[in-house]
Every structure is written in structure tokens, then in C-alpha cells.
Amino acid sequence: MADTIYTISAFIALAAVITAGVRLIAGPTVADRVIALDVLTIITVSLIVYIARMSGRIIYVDVAMVYALISFVGVVAFARFLERGL
């Protein structure tokens, strides 16, 4: 029962990836695309932890943590770039 619900949740998160992906492709301005990217990375972090649970490899949680760190730095760098160029 619980496993089924976990699987359904993963599929809903995948649907969220597709939804945000549409904005990533369509977004009229750069800022729109960066927001979509930010949302995508957060969903991806959740999905990585989900995979860690499913495959029983705790080490993947560390991967998710590093990914969250890097995406934060990336978004802030993008914001800086938007503001005045690199």
C-alpha cells in the first residue's frame, strides 16, 4: 500500500517536471527560464532522494545535497548575470 503511494507520488513529481519544462522552453524572458530551472532543480532534488530510498543507497542523499548547493549557486550567478553581466 505504502509503496504504491510512493510510486504515485514519484509520477506526480514527474508530471511537475514536465509542466515546469514547458515554461523552461516557452518562457519569453531569461528570468522566466531561470525560475523554471530553479523549480526543476528542486523537484529533481526530491526525486534523487526518492531514488535513494528505492534503491537503498543512502549515498544518493549526499548527491541530492550537493545538487541543491550547486543549483543555489547557479541561480544566484544567473541573477547576477541578468543584473549587470558577468
Partner: peptide, 15 residues
């Protein structure tokens, strides 16, 4: 987890 994934989806929908 299910509630969380629904919120993630709604966030993406809002975007």
C-alpha cells in the same frame, strides 16, 4: 510524500 508531490506539481503549474 503524496501531499508533497501534489504541492510540487501545483508549484510547477503556477510557474
Amino acid at each position: 510524500t503524496l501531499a508533497g508531490s501534489l504541492l510540487l506539481f501545483l508549484g510547477a503549474l503556477g510557474v
